[in-house]
Write a protein that binds this DNA or RNA. Structure first.
Length: 410
RNA sequence: GGGGGGGUGGCAGAGCGGUCAAAUGCAACGGACUGUAACUCCGUCGGGGAAACCCUACACAGGUUCGAAUCCUGUCCCCCCCA
């Protein structure tokens, strides 16, 4: 695959920056991208009101698509979310109301607006909702008009299906149908927007290929698909989890300081990869930074954190986060950007203080922290779990060396 | 429909009448080392309580026992094989 040198800006960027896992027709897509504006889409579930770093590869890909002169389509799975894609899930997803789904779509839209330009222009991003066409689907006519184009033989040959069958895990009819609906989405987007490209994670390959086939058969249009590699950290663990949970891209869900910290704590070995994927720094710069060692790579992580935070939350948020981090970690001081909790002034037990500040999940955990010597108030180690604290002014609480929070008296 | 095997802490997976808040591994958290890394090492890891101590837990509901995650009965769920 890599023997072909792409000529289009978009594909070249994708290859150089490590976005590309696979493509259905590398040369064909390249040509289409050179010929005119190619609307390209990625589908997103509406299960939460924000997206997280696990989506960031896809988001950046859409951003590059727009930057290189094409049209991004962020398809909301409003229709499919009502059913729920059960693949990989242990239990059936709880059903969301239409209202919840709409709220979630609005939240997701907020995230995208930071990365993409929406509007009515040829290269402006649009955000359709597949409920608009899936809700009206009639089972019998769907089977008759579209079901005929899918053979079970072929569907069984897809890895996503084969894996499940090989592992002797049940695959419900619902899941099996999911790929038909997604194929239908692609075809519909091709009709409505002239969409010529679907992108997604490597696990979406089968679904994407089905959409391409269906679009060719029904619309008689040649469309393309490309996938991104599954992102893992250098130590083999999943990317995008932190102590407190998912790394949300929405400031309501995760403070910009904590978001910044997530990137600041990138493993050495991942710095280059993340710079290329999640920032827009020139390629050579990314590669140079990745080769640094010791203090150098440490500074590179700050740069990474600043760049990603600027994209997701703006330059001001990034600067504030960096200032706080430098104050806290380099000078041992206090920064405004630390997670802050307000409490009524007065006496509280240390244990409760740590729980309320979000530094301990339970009183037991707070006590454990204290007995292990990891709990500090204004940098003084707490030794007595029975201590009563008079909350007044601002206190800096620390759990270990990295987790800090401020408590303010009302 | 018949036969068999299972459901244990965030996950994986022991335990199969008392010494079990439950081995071990992973994850997580704290500490040492450092660069706010990685690796390694040490410690912690159901909840409430300052503590003594108390409470809830081995799918669910009952039962047998001085005593049950462990035995019995019923219910629900999962997997496998046969039809």
């Amino acid at each position: 695959m890599m023997t072909y040198q792409p000529k289009s800006d978009f594909l070249r960027t994708m290859v150089e920056r490590g976005f590309l896992q696979d493509c259905t027709d590398f040369e064909g897509l390249d040509e289409a991208l050179l010929t005119g504006v190619v609307p390209g889409y990625i589908g997103f579930d509406c299960t939460a009101d924000s997206l997280h770093v696990g989506h960031l590869t896809q988001i950046m890909m859409l951003r590059w698509l727009q930057k290189t002169g094409h049209k991004p389509i962020t398809l909301m799975g409003g229709g499919t979310t009502k059913i729920g894609d059960p693949s990989g899930k242990d239990e059936a997803r709880q059903l969301l109301t239409t209202e919840q789904i709409n709220d979630n779509m609005a939240g997701i839209r907020h995230v995208f607006e930071r990365f993409l330009t929406f509007g009515d222009g040829a290269q402006d991003a649009v955000q359709p909702n597949n409920a608009d066409w899936l809700d009206e689907l009639n089972y019998v006519s769907f089977l008759r008009d579209y079901g005929r184009h899918f053979t079970i033989n072929r569907m069984l040959s897809f890895d996503s299906v084969k894996l499940r069958l090989d592992r002797e895990q049940p695959l419900t009819f619902l899941e099996f149908n999911y790929m038909l609906l997604q194929a239908y989405d692609f075809m519909e987007l091709n009709k409505r927007y002239g969409c010529g490209l679907q992108m997604g994670g490597s696990d979406q390959w089968g679904n994407i290929v089905n959409g391409i086939d269906l679009t060719r058969r029904i619309n008689r249009n040649q469309v393309f698909g490309l996938t991104t590699p599954l992102l893992t950290k250098a130590d083999g663990t999943k990317m995008g989890k932190s102590a407190s949970g998912a790394i949300w891209l929405n400031a309501d869900r995760l403070s910009t300081y904590e978001f910044w910290q997530f990137w600041r704590n990138t493993l050495d070995a991942d710095v280059g990869k993340f710079l290329k994927l999640f920032t827009e720094l020139p390629l050579e710069e990314c590669e140079r930074l990745a080769t640094l060692e010791g203090a150098g790579i440490n500074e590179a992580k700050i740069l990474l954190a600043n760049e990603v935070t600027t994209l997701a939350h703006g330059a001001e948020a990034a600067a504030a986060a960096e200032a706080t981090a430098r104050e806290v970690f380099e000078k041992g001081g206090v920064g405004d950007d630390l997670p802050t909790v307000s409490l009524p002034a007065g006496e509280t037990s240390v244990v409760q203080l740590f729980v309320k500040a979000g530094l301990a999940a339970s009183g037991k955990e707070a006590k454990r922290l204290i007995s292990e010597g990891g709990a500090k108030i204004d940098d003084e180690a707490v030794t007595d779990a029975g201590l009563m604290i008079d909350v007044s002014g601002t206190l800096k609480l620390s759990a270990g060396k990295k987790r800090h929070a401020l408590v303010k008296a009302d």
